[in-house]
Design a protein around this nucleic acid. Structure first.
Lengths: 342, 342
DNA sequence: TTGTAGGCGTTATCAG
DNA sequence: CTGATAACGCCTACAA
């Protein structure tokens, strides 16, 4: 039987209203009383009942974070950032793992969205239509790693990351570069593909070999590594570090030397990137900041309806927060001894 | 303005009480009415207000999970398991990262514990005293990876894991085995140390070199690798895979060959273990199951007071759920060519 | 500056 | 089997 505000009020010899104000609106209460009430509350170990408060204020003090895979270091890092920033704001975080499944994701947003003040939806796998529906609910929704008309979002400069990677590989002499893309339907993958082709086009003599869509995990990389060799590419750019690591693994197992025969570049600079030797050259993404900024954007900006309508009736997106990325060169690209010969 | 139960009741032409029962206790309502109410509720898109329900039932439908570090693959995997099982039970999970800090951990349990139906506390860093206090609150608490008098817990057979690892190393010819232990105060580390010395004692001629307490992350491993060499150990057992990977990394960087010069064994078999070449020999822990069983134990077993008092007045712990572990031999131990020479 | 009173949406208790 | 009615703990006009 927990201590209620009534208990505090009685013990402090004031009315419940005064007790409430002493704790939530200190400036409305005479200093002496205020302090007295607060002291009593502390002594009694009073904890406000969130349900009661929520019932009347409509606010839960909870955020929800939905990610495709908690074990993926990328999402783990974002989750950590979200968690930290939310805590600093006095908010708790309900986390849900959608298992890379757009349908489950949609269901989770619907179910959990009803009991929180806002939802951070990270790298959504759901369709644009499903996103529209989710947006239509009255929960503030913030997208990480995807843009969508009418939705607030925090993204990274996907295209610039691949541009930097390709420029680096080109400088090393590579002319035939394979791309192990992300999951089919991945928004960031589409952005990177665009960036990749644009970058290649601006670098004369550079060819891109598309390896198709790859599961964004280690085994996904393992399964496409042979295609890199079969296509006579001298370098490969992977959708994320895990895929890059898988490629690296398979390449080494086949006796292909990295980076002498083939250079490998990852994306994210997740903690996994430095676990291996050769260490992964990768595009560093400000992971924790992605999470922190997502919370800030959600709290400050996306109050209820992120979308607005212009005079002409079109839906207008709030400008996405766009974070820059930076190539980190390590051993997995090195200087490609044979690249020029290809 | 969401649809309330009142709306449903009015629309269906029944009282709120009947509407409530039709949805939550179907057997108490005449079939025809029951279906009618349910249909109306569905049409109106009725969603029960959790706050109102919680206010009267006292149950939140939320669990809380506190881990030292979300980015550690061990905890990420446990979190994933907790998350999955909770969802299957219709529960949401509030996740908190304690940043390996016992004080923060204590605070989080206190703060979040008040708003959930139970807390899964994973690898607690807090003191026994703090644990006692946490247990004294009226939130069911379940410990993962730690035992404590009066607390329900799900653990692994820590000692048996090191026993298997040492037996393996011994069979390979190793006689001088270094141990890179976990964080100071870590319960599982203490269990493993015990197991280590017992195992070594039963294997004649085997010496254990204690390397002290190591931060349970990659860099922790990097920082103790040199001690392995300095102590002329031919094998090293690490507190977890991350530490093992750090050791591996530094060893390779120094030109020490693995496993030819030194064998390395990890613990957990987290996803990181297979990221490298040589792949890590490690003690496989059923990570997802740890999370699932934790939720099950919390829900089924730890209703309010996990502790009971015996006739004699002692506190009695419910028997911990103990999961077995299994050594997975991979390339990082191999056959130690020089081990016998040491 | 403080107290009183009403109600947020649900479920539980009872009477019918 | 069904329907009033009373809480649950808190906040917030409104009145004093």
């Amino acid at each position: 039987m927990p201590v209620t505000l009534q208990d505090v009020a009685r013990e402090a010899g004031v009315s419940p209203a005064t007790a409430s104000r002493a704790l939530n609106a200190p400036e409305l209460v005479a200093p002496a009383r205020r302090e007295h009430v607060r002291k009593v509350a502390a002594q009694l170990g009073y904890r406000p009942n969130r349900a009661a408060r929520e019932l009347i204020t409509g606010r839960t003090g909870n955020l929800c974070l939905v990610v495709p895979d908690l074990e993926n270091p990328f999402f783990a890092a974002v989750a950590k950032g979200v968690q930290a920033r939310a805590r600093a704001l006095g908010l708790a975080v309900v986390v849900a793992d959608s298992e890379e499944d757009g349908h489950l994701e949609t269901e989770l947003v619907g179910r959990l969205g009803a009991q929180v003040d806002g939802v951070v939806l990270c790298s959504p796998r759901m369709t644009d239509e499903a996103l529209d529906e989710a947006l239509a609910r009255d929960v503030p929704l913030l997208l990480v790693n995807r843009e969508h008309p009418g939705a607030a979002s925090v993204v990274i400069d996907n295209a610039d990351g691949v541009r930097q990677a390709v420029a680096h590989l080109h400088a090393l002499g590579h002319r035939r570069i394979a791309y192990a893309g992300g999951p089919a339907g991945s928004w960031s993958d589409a952005r990177r593909r665009e960036g990749l082709h644009r970058a290649a086009a601006s670098l004369p003599g550079t060819e891109v070999v598309e390896l198709g869509h790859v599961a964004p995990v280690f085994d996904g990389g393992v399964s496409v590594a042979d295609l890199v060799v079969a296509n006579a590419a001298t370098a490969v750019l992977a959708h994320n570090d895990l895929v890059a690591l898988g490629i690296l693994h398979r390449l080494v197992a086949r006796g292909v030397r990295v980076p002498d025969d083939v250079s490998v570049v990852g994306y994210d600079d997740s903690p996994a990137a430095t676990l291996v030797a050769p260490a992964l050259t990768t595009v560093r993404v400000p992971l924790a900041r992605l999470g922190r900024d997502a919370v800030d954007a959600l709290v400050n900006h996306a109050p209820r309806a992120a979308r607005r309508r212009t005079a002409s009736g079109e839906t207008e997106s709030p400008a996405p927060v766009r974070l820059s990325v930076e190539l980190v060169v390590r051993d997995s690209t090195g200087v490609a001894a044979t690249a020029g010969d290809a």
